[in-house]
Amino acid sequence: MKLTTTKLNRFLLFKLPSAYICGVRVKEIAFDKCKVSVKHRWINQNPFNSMYFAVQAMAAELSTGALVMLHVQNSNRNIAMLVASNKSKFTKKATGRITFECQNENQIETAIQNTIATGEGQTFWLKSIGANESGEQVSEMDFEWTIKLKQ
């Protein structure tokens, strides 16, 4: 099964319903980048009339995780993946439509090749930048992913 935006959004509906209900949607996925979008609405707001940080984190994590899933699928190996830690920085109030973009600079492919070659787990960081409709950055989130071959 090839990962597509439609299949990933259907996955959200059934496996991550809170993200789906909050409006998180994959807009674009390719081997080098993934874009995920979410619009500020009543269901995902905080008391300060902007998007709740956890909703931003769901969208940002999905932009990184979908890329990892795509590369794992392409490896044709049975590889487990998990977020080990994350860091966030918020620079502007998140209102309107926020788009998170993660660009893969070969960290994923290198880690997959290393875990296949050595049989040992690997960790790597992926960054997702959230920007509003004007292109202004509202948040920056880094996720440390761990992968390892399943037995």
Rank of each mutant, 00 (worst) to 15 (best):
Q45E: 15
Q45M: 09
Q45S: 15
N46F: 03
P47G: 02
P47N: 06
P47M: 01
F48R: 04
F48P: 00
F48S: 07
N49V: 00
N49P: 00
N49Q: 12
M51S: 08
M51K: 01
M51I: 09
Y52H: 15
Y52D: 11
F53Q: 05
F53L: 08
F53I: 15
F53C: 04
A54D: 02
Q56A: 01
Q56T: 02
Q56N: 09
Q56C: 01
A57W: 08
A57P: 01
A57I: 00
M58W: 04
A59T: 04
A59M: 03
A60Q: 11
A60M: 10
A60G: 15
A60R: 03
E61I: 13
L62E: 09
L62G: 11
S63C: 07
S63R: 07
T64S: 12
T64F: 10
G65W: 07
G65C: 03
L67Y: 11
L67N: 13
L67P: 08
V68Q: 12
V68I: 10
L70A: 12
L70T: 00
L70S: 02
L70C: 03
L70V: 00
V72Q: 03
V72G: 08
Q73H: 10
Q73R: 06
Q73M: 10
Q73G: 11
N74R: 13
S75T: 09
N76G: 07
N76M: 05
R77W: 02
N78Q: 14
N78S: 15
N78W: 10
I79S: 10
I79D: 12
A80I: 05
A80H: 08
V83P: 07
V83W: 10
A84E: 12
A84V: 14
A84H: 14
S85V: 02
S85M: 00
S85Y: 04
S85D: 15
S85H: 07
S85E: 14
S85A: 15
N86Y: 10
K87C: 03
K87D: 14
K87N: 13
K87Q: 14
S88P: 00
S88L: 14
S88D: 01
K89H: 14
K89R: 15
F90S: 02
T91G: 11
T91V: 14
K92L: 07
K92G: 05
K92Y: 05
K92W: 05
A94Y: 01
A94H: 01
A94F: 08
A94Q: 06
T95N: 13
T95Y: 08
G96P: 06
G96C: 00
R97W: 00
R97N: 13
R97M: 12
R97T: 15
I98A: 10
I98V: 13
I98L: 06
T99C: 03
T99G: 09
F100C: 14
F100I: 05
E101G: 00
E101N: 11
E101T: 15
E101I: 15
C102A: 14
C102G: 10
